[in-house]
């Protein structure tokens, strides 16, 4: 995978497939980017499990915080990393020991570790680096267009509403949006 530029179909495929996301480096502070992404993904129907050793045992928006990935009792589809690039490798190594193994390692905006990515890809996982799942969901669902962001998508089909309220959009079927990035 070229990690400088992902096809929309790759990102859409991941966001349409994963259901349970473990968020490593989660902050319970409401003004932190990880809290934004956590809350947003929960609202879009994902199960999001916060991971932070300093907050373990507490609950945020009804979700229990775990100290580390291997403490989570349920299967995880995707690990979303909100840690500095230098901390990613051991997180991937820990993810590789999980049974079943997660399908996706996702590193947040500004986070990139090519060695960790290679390790995960060699184990058959999909990897996304330097992206935010909230922004990508918003972009591919067209919600982000409401704040003037260039979604880099064109379509002559209606965007699909999420079905809960009027200001929430869903990713819709895969062929809805023509990729162009």
């Amino acid at each position: 995978m070229n990690h400088d530029s992902y096809p929309d179909s790759y990102i859409r495929g991941i966001l349409n497939t994963v259901k349970t996301v473990a968020m490593v480096g989660f902050s319970p502070k409401e003004n932190r980017p990880s809290y934004f992404a956590f809350k947003y993904l929960l609202e879009r129907g994902y199960r999001v499990i916060p991971v932070n050793p300093g907050q373990a045992g507490k609950e945020v928006l009804g979700q229990k915080i775990y100290a580390k990935l291997s403490d989570i009792p349920d299967p995880i589809d995707m690990v979303d990393v909100f840690r500095g690039s230098e901390h990613v490798l051991p997180i991937v190594q820990e993810a590789l020991t999980l049974q079943p193994k997660p399908q996706v390692i996702w590193m947040q905006l500004t986070v990139r570790n090519d060695e960790a990515a290679r390790l995960a890809e060699e184990a058959g996982m999909k990897v996304v680096m330097n992206r935010c799942p909230k922004i990508e969901y918003g972009r591919l669902s067209t919600e982000i267009s409401w704040i003037g962001v260039n979604s880099r998508t064109l379509s002559s089909k209606r965007a699909q509403m999420y079905g809960k309220g009027v200001q929430r959009m869903s990713l819709g079927p895969k062929e809805e949006t023509k990729d162009k990035n």
């Binding site: 096809p7 929309d8 179909s9 067209t142 267009s145 260039n150 979604s151 064109l154 379509s155 002559s156 089909k157 209606r158 965007a159 699909q160 509403m161 009027v166 959009m169 023509k178 990729d179 162009k180 990035n181």
Partner: peptide
Amino acid sequence: MADADRIPGFATLSIHAGAKPDPTTGA
């Protein structure tokens, strides 16, 4: 997905960029 990496031309963007059919009415 042969067109996955294709960037539309300027005239196409001038007409379509940002303007999908209205999600509630289809306008």
